[in-house]
Design a protein around this nucleic acid. Structure first.
Lengths: 341, 341
DNA sequence: CACTGAAGTTGAATCGTTTCATTGTTACGA
DNA sequence: TCGTAACAATGAAACGATTCAACTTCAGTG
């Protein structure tokens, strides 16, 4: 178990100077064919592998981008992450992934960690109010792009989806198919995506004088949390039930659906129409295929990297806020029997 | 945008030597209270953040573990990754995640990358035959633990689940509820998990003289691939249809389910019973709640880290192969009307 | 034949941290 | 007062890569 070879060992083995080995690695054109061959042979013989820590130390920064998301288990973020990784790879950067799990202290830990790693830049879907910290970061030359959150573009670049509009679309759709006693499932409302979607829904409901919107606060956005809400609903007398439910994401909606359909006394969509948010892959194959609001996840991930690259390349501070528009996807959970996939 | 402060700057500011600052950071007991305060104040004033590259360079290795999985989009791996991250965090290591996407060259790139990062060790769910490379790694002091793949424990430590047994359980269950014309959906068979599950299924089918097993090769393990297979199935005359289908994972099963139920001509489980593999969260809320084979994902992730830690701490080469046993979960897709959640 | 410039090559300096042998300081018992 | 132990603090060396000014070769030119 001998120490791994360094560039110096390679230089000795090949009978050249360390600078030459470095040139072979980084600027092959500067080196003669003969020398290059000898060096490459030595590299191979010794099984030399560059030490990235040393490169980084010298360079003063890594070739790495930090990405902090709220929940990697959520297919929405999984998809965003993948897109960001691909986009980063194209320009030769790697992505360090952090999962805050909606937890401020974990979020803060990841910011610390990424700072120690000297990431080139940071993409973050923030939990708490981290603007102060992010400003400090930027002053030190580490730009940040906010993901899935609109930012004042005087402060930061951001990529987001219009959650208010998405909420409006969802509720408007329920109203359009004749539902009037709506319920919103999601929480805690401190999560801004949840709050925005609710606000949009309320806007739509206000357009119909005879419509009401009940808010059912959930603990988190998981399938399990949805099942909890659903179980409480089925215990109500039928007349107190909503006839249209809008869930802040598909996981919740699938959970609610599970509970509602379990006893076979309630029908979706006849008794209760149900719509989710995110349009994850599994929604199509739900008990009742789930209507949803689709967000352009690939575009979000890709754009986030693009905005970051812009900031990295131009030293003058010029921020942009890109806002995507979500899209209604109607499936059986909000349609009559005539509806198809 | 001034250069970030170094330990030297802190030392100047506090009027002490660099070694002392380092001691404050790493061995606070060695430093007097007075000095410690001064140094901490200087750190705060300058906003000093340790440069991890420099630490690593000096230490000769990182505090990082590499983890390469086949597909992060697959909830099975998402869950394993999360467990591994948590276990690693407990012992002060971070996890670098790589997604090979079943692609040998991407896998190879990640191994290179992780080597440059000087990871302490590697957890990998391998695509190709990488034993040769992994042996080289180990000789250089980077131990590897194979994940979701059984290894000869003379060679490597490994954590796996008995896929043959899982396949047997699934097929045996279909046979037990009276099905005889079985089909296996999954592919390509070069993926060893798929091949093992098939082998187990074949073993079960051989136990019944009047049972048959048809193999439907799929392109990948996604919902989409499953839908493709399903679409081909529904075009068959009813008498040529299988009466029990075992899919190599739940994503495939959900896709197949989607296609089969779309036309409302086939009933699950009456006409065709369906069982998947992995028991992902979404299976409960499928059109017809999906029977599946559950794997202990948290235990897998945790154990992988434990085995790696063992190898890191004992210099003598002592490998272990941990094999978990999967578990049958019966839901409606293979049960009569009497079945419940 | 001397001179020029291009192409190759060299090796010391540098990045920021940790380590550790050395030096300085203090307290206490003899 | 001296000796010594315990404790604090110091600062040069080392980690491994990259950079760059300086040097060597050598072909081409006048």
């Amino acid at each position: 178990m001998n120490r791994t070879a360094s560039i110096k060992d390679v230089a000795n083995q090949a009978g050249v100077a360390v600078g030459t080995v470095s040139n072979v690695l980084n600027y092959p054109d500067r080196v003669s064919e003969r020398t290059k061959e000898r060096v490459l042979k030595a590299i191979d013989d010794l099984g030399f592998v560059r030490n990235d820590a040393a490169r980084q130390l010298r360079a003063g920064h890594s070739r790495t981008i930090g990405l902090i998301v709220l929940d990697v288990g959520n297919p929405f973020f999984t998809s965003v992450v993948r897109a960001a990784e691909d986009a980063a790879a194209l320009q030769g950067s790697a992505v360090l992934l952090g999962d805050s799990g909606h937890n401020e202290s974990r979020e803060s830990n990841y910011i610390d960690l990424f700072q120690e790693q000297r990431v080139q830049g940071l993409l973050i879907s923030p939990v708490g109010d981290v603007t102060a910290r992010l400003n400090v970061l930027r002053e030190r030359g580490v730009p940040t792009v906010l993901v899935d959150r609109l930012a004042d573009d005087a402060m930061f670049s951001s990529v987001s989806v219009d959650d208010d509009e998405g909420g409006y679309l969802a509720a408007r759709h329920l109203l359009d198919i004749g539902r009037r006693r709506l319920a919103f499932v999601g929480g805690p409302l401190s999560i801004h995506q949840v709050a925005d979607r609710l606000r949009g829904a309320q806007r739509a409901v206000k357009e119909e004088s005879d419509a009401t919107l009940e808010v059912l606060d959930s603990e988190g956005q998981s399938v399990l949390a949805g099942r909890g809400i659903g179980n409480r609903l089925v215990e109500r007398p039928a007349k107190n039930l909503p006839d249209g439910i809008f869930c802040a994401n598909d996981l919740l909606a699938l959970g609610v659906m599970q509970s509602l359909t379990m006893m076979h006394t309630l029908r979706i969509p006849e008794d209760i129409a149900l719509i989710g948010y995110d349009d994850i892959d599994f929604s199509v194959s739900a008990v009742v295929p789930l209507s949803s609001i689709r967000q352009p996840t690939e575009a979000i991930g890709r754009t986030a990297i693009e905005l970051l690259t812009e900031e990295l390349e131009s030293q003058q501070v010029r921020h942009r806020a890109v806002v995507f528009t979500p899209e209604l996807v109607v499936r059986q959970s909000t349609a009559g029997a005539e509806a198809s996939l």
